[in-house]
């Protein structure tokens, strides 16, 4: 059964949140979701662009007070 893990990368500057997401995806199983919490504004656009480039599945982004939650599903 697919799982979801959350990584709190708030406070880290670019490209820290993206690198943390990638490291988590590498260890995840296909179908698992990784939610990354980031206060870095660029992550909200960078992460979906990276996901499209490498072929994972972008689930969505939610804006909170001062940070973003971006969810990605491992597709390969």
């Amino acid at each position: 059964m697919a799982e979801r893990q959350t990584i709190d990368a708030r406070g880290a500057f670019c490209p820290g949140p993206l690198m943390e997401l990638i490291a988590a995806l590498k260890l995840a199983t296909v179908g698992d979701e990784v939610e990354i919490l980031s206060s870095d504004k660029g992550s909200a656009t960078d992460i979906p662009a990276w996901v499209a480039k490498v072929g994972h599945e972008y689930v969505g982004t939610t804006e909170h007070d001062g940070y973003w939650s971006v969810v990605v599903r491992k597709a390969k």
Partner: peptide
């Protein structure tokens, strides 16, 4: 380092 690492992890 930023350019190299992000490009490398982007295949």
């Amino acid at each position: 380092a930023m350019i190299a690492s992000v490009a490398a992890v982007s295949d």
